[in-house]
Amino acid sequence: MRKFVYIVTDRNRTSLHVGMSADLIKTLDFYKKMPSLFFDSGQQLTRLVYFEELKTESQALNRFKVISRFTRMQKERLVRACNPDWIDLTIGLDFEHITMSRPLSTQVKIPLTIMS
């Protein structure tokens, strides 16, 4: 079973929150639907800027503990290493989830051709 460790932030990058989840899309939906549960409206943590996929819960928990102890600067370096423009990665996950959840017959099939 897949496990994820992730970092979410608000639109101004004021807060960086490290989390762990078995269903990243469901977790991100929760953040978007319940933003004021933990933070005020100015700190809505709706932007996924970093995530790692791990194979076991123990690997994910260990990685979560490591990243959680990072200073803000270390977290920013981690994000910038793979996402230098701090793009919201949720868009790509939503696309992948929609594509992968369709029956195979309705998925777009791209023919393999050799360009000459």
Rank of each mutant, 00 (worst) to 15 (best):
T71Q: 02
A81N: 08
F39P: 00
L61C: 13
V66A: 06
P84L: 05
F38W: 07
Q44N: 09
K109L: 08
Q107K: 15
L89H: 04
M1L: 07
S116H: 13
R2Y: 10
T9D: 05
S41R: 13
K75T: 03
F38M: 07
W86T: 02
R2I: 10
D10S: 07
N12R: 14
T99E: 14
R11L: 11
M34Y: 15
V49C: 02
P35G: 01
R47K: 05
L61H: 15
L112A: 12
L45Q: 03
D29S: 12
E52G: 02
I114F: 07
R69V: 04
E76I: 14
L16T: 06
D23E: 13
S68V: 01
I25S: 04
D85G: 08
S101V: 03
F95P: 00
K32F: 09
C82F: 08
S68E: 05
R2T: 09
Q107E: 06
M1K: 05
R80W: 06
H17A: 10
F51V: 03
S15W: 09
P111N: 15
L78C: 00
L28R: 01
R11M: 11
T9L: 09
R72S: 03
T9I: 05
Q43M: 10
S36H: 06
K55L: 12
R102L: 15
S105D: 08
S21D: 06
L61T: 14
I25V: 11
C82G: 11
L48K: 01
D40K: 04
A60R: 02
D29M: 08
Q59H: 13
L28S: 01
R63D: 03
M34V: 07
F51M: 04
E96R: 13
D94V: 14
E53P: 00
M20I: 10
L78F: 00
V108P: 02
V79F: 03
F38E: 04
P103K: 11
I91D: 08
